[in-house]
Amino acid sequence: MKRLIATLLTCMVGAAISAGPALADQMADIKKKGVLVVGVKTDYPPWGTRDASGAIVGMEPEMAADVAKRLGVKLELVPVVSSNRMQFLQQGQIDLMIATMSDTPERRKVVGIVDPVYYASGVAILANKKAGIKNAADLKGKPVCALQGAFYNNDLQSKYTGRDLVAFKGVTEAQQALLDGRCVGFVYDDVVLVWQKAQESKWGDFDVVMLNEWAPVPWGLAVKIEELNGPWGKFMADVTADWLKSGTLLALEKKWVGSNTPWLVDASAKAKK
């Protein structure tokens, strides 16, 4: 038993050493392998999801495919979840992560988030047209549906509505409440609201109104932190800049999300200048 434990420990230490930073140039490695391994989400439509055949599809898998095409290598998609995506990148299990990750200073210490960022989600309200809502100030005294624990709830309640929010645990419940007329609008991520409105006819009497009182949260794609300033990180920075400039992201968003969000329209226009 003791010997077994000793052997296991030796293996683990040995593995830890060999898993350390060893690659000098990841980009050359990817080309040598002939495969680009990208971590994407499988539970976040339309950015990363599975179809019934099991294939991973969405806006981010298409972005990954474009990177592979530019490198002239095959693409391998690895499903990641929020709890393991950064670890997969650190360990070298994936070369690139495009997984709906918000860009935060804490995360920038762990993984190499590439600038410019490729996407951002702002705060918006899916509001009944009859309510005539144009901005957050118009919500005063009105019942508003929201999700429990969203970062803007406190502000929304104390600065704008001035009354308790109609808060729910899940998106579907909140939407049902909105359809049932229990609130004038549902406050949530603009990108998801835009997508859902485009998907279903039942939102015909509703508009997605941006609430610019809250700054959009950028989404970053990431490489290993040691690679950020190396050839691989620089290559991805160029690719992202080109996606914005050439309108590739706008086209992809149009295809998957259904219509373009203000942040991306703005970022693409700025990149063109």
Partner: peptide, 12 residues
């Protein structure tokens, strides 16, 4: 995969 399917369908 069940959770992926539920996410893809978006139907409560």
């Amino acid at each position: 995969l069940t959770q992926d399917a539920l996410a893809a369908e978006q139907r409560s």
